[in-house]
Design a protein around this nucleic acid. Sequence first.
DNA 1: TTGTAGGCGTTATCAC
DNA 2: GTGATAACGCCTACAA
Lengths: 364, 364
Amino acid sequence: MKKNPKSSAHKRPTLKDIARDLGLHVSTISRALNPETRHGVSPGLADKIRRASARRGYRPNAAAYNLKTNRSRIVGVVIPDITDPVFPPIIRGIEDGLARHGYVAVIANTDGNAQKEAQVIDSMRGRGVDGLILASVLRHDRDAVTAAEGLPVVTVSRRTDDTDYSSVVHDEDDGVRQVLTHLASLGHRNIVTIAGPQTISTGYNRYSSYVHHCERLKLGAAQPLASFARAFNETEGERCAEELLATGRKFTAIVCANDRLAVGVVTTLRRHGIDCPRDISVTGFNDMPLCDRLYPPLTTVRVQHHRAGLEAAEAMVGIITKSVTTPRHIVLPVALVARESTQPPAAVRVERRLQTHGNRASRK
Amino acid sequence: MKKNPKSSAHKRPTLKDIARDLGLHVSTISRALNPETRHGVSPGLADKIRRASARRGYRPNAAAYNLKTNRSRIVGVVIPDITDPVFPPIIRGIEDGLARHGYVAVIANTDGNAQKEAQVIDSMRGRGVDGLILASVLRHDRDAVTAAEGLPVVTVSRRTDDTDYSSVVHDEDDGVRQVLTHLASLGHRNIVTIAGPQTISTGYNRYSSYVHHCERLKLGAAQPLASFARAFNETEGERCAEELLATGRKFTAIVCANDRLAVGVVTTLRRHGIDCPRDISVTGFNDMPLCDRLYPPLTTVRVQHHRAGLEAAEAMVGIITKSVTTPRHIVLPVALVARESTQPPAAVRVERRLQTHGNRASRK
DNA sequence: TTGTAGGCGTTATCAC
DNA sequence: GTGATAACGCCTACAA
């Protein structure tokens, strides 16, 4: 039972094996087993072949298929860092989407390093990936673009300015609009922002929208105040909050370009004895996992991470299989999630209390 | 410049191409380029060949290599759900470790479903993975074991009871010991637990250690009280906390089998108007990302997620390349991280205050 | 030290 | 409809 070559136990059976079993030819087996070419074989025989190969536990050899067809059914996924809470749901979406079509993902982390990005893309190309899903691109990403040359590319969550890659992104502008409308309706007038890196489409778009909608809603006082983060993380949130406080300017709300920045902001505020939301309201963007369990639960913009991954995967498979050449740009809707990190500013609260004749518990 | 077959632009060059360029034969090129066989070719020629292939931008064709050598340099990684915050750091570690040796990971999610686990393992085997790293196994996982038959397997974070797979786990027992010692030193005596699924090694070991160390430290009153979670998530944490409260038993601390359960517990306590840590202390396990930004910052056990992934990857490559046959079991040290979710019980605080003659600010 | 030939498992293009 | 044959790109005896 150990090395019996005739036994079904040891080596994986090949087309040749089941051809020998049935006294047929390899090519017939191949045809019968391939849905695309099944028509060229009589129904009865095809059935018999399928049953026989199932019985033998036949599994097509991926390497041979790859070599012959030059298709690996592997898609490379390039992200900054899987450890950042926004990416796992996206990846899950990508994997789920790819799996539907028999594709799998190979993931690489760039740590936001453009050089490393080009390098991992190169190595993925060496592995013969059928396409690339990039969640790491900058707005002007020459390195990535040249490294990816000739391969199908879909960007997800982000977008490049200058190429015609297909993309799946979130409606950043509407998100920012909803945040500012929400803050305005609470009574905030002096709203500042912590913007993300302007080299990344999300950072750039969210900041532009902030400026645009502040103007439109007559917010942000004289000139809107902004601090620019060099990365989307807690540490930068802390640093930027310090920077804003150091200006001495008065403001009652901070709009952050993403949740992790907001988390850092809250930490810094607390360190300064400033309470969120009592003294200052803070908003995030993304609604990453655990957002609702933070202190305070964070008001943020929910984006469809998983869905974005799914769409990106579908788009990729579409390009690979149907050779869709015209780039498609999908923009997914977002939704404000108002939690406890936003509240009317103190002055407004006092005012309202007076209006309601000192009615306590007017707002828990 | 579009389809010139002689141009270096379009199709990836093969060994044959650079052989033709140099007027040599394919096998010579192959030998010169392969570090293992380079000895069999004169140094001068080898150099010339390497330069030429570099100039042409030669990249070995992975599929052909795979087909010939029956090695894919792909390792399958099976996890419950990449969306669970504990897994990304592990995966990052695995990917970093594999990358050192030119391997990549393909990830699949099982959602804790044993059947799905067997299924994804099967499909990975179809892809010709060189080995499997399992972060999803149960203690008795017949499905996984049979599906993985014949492939190198390393389990990470978890372990099976009955097979001889190599494994990389954390020192659960020491973690629980440190947690209980910490709570005891704060003055807690009535300590209950929310245990994880007993079908999983972590759940089982942490609970066993809880029982053992409670006894050793004379804790847990008459009989220790436990509620058993059906999964390691916030919802189950909430449910189990309700269950504990419903018993009517008095206790001052809840030891949770992981952080997500602890997060759920805190939510439930708050819903009942019970403050953590003032009224009840809560501890977690894992020190997942954002643990320090929760409310209250969670006292927990730091485990080396990334390191575990690295070690698992190294172990896997060791098995694949050097055919290490004897399973190795690595246990990584852990460390208590005391944060604000643990505090002396109210009775003890009062007592201490009396002892210090009403000294306010004795403890912030 | 270098060249030759065969084959890994599959698919595609012939002919029958 | 089915069988034969070549080829995908690489590795590796073996021959020269």
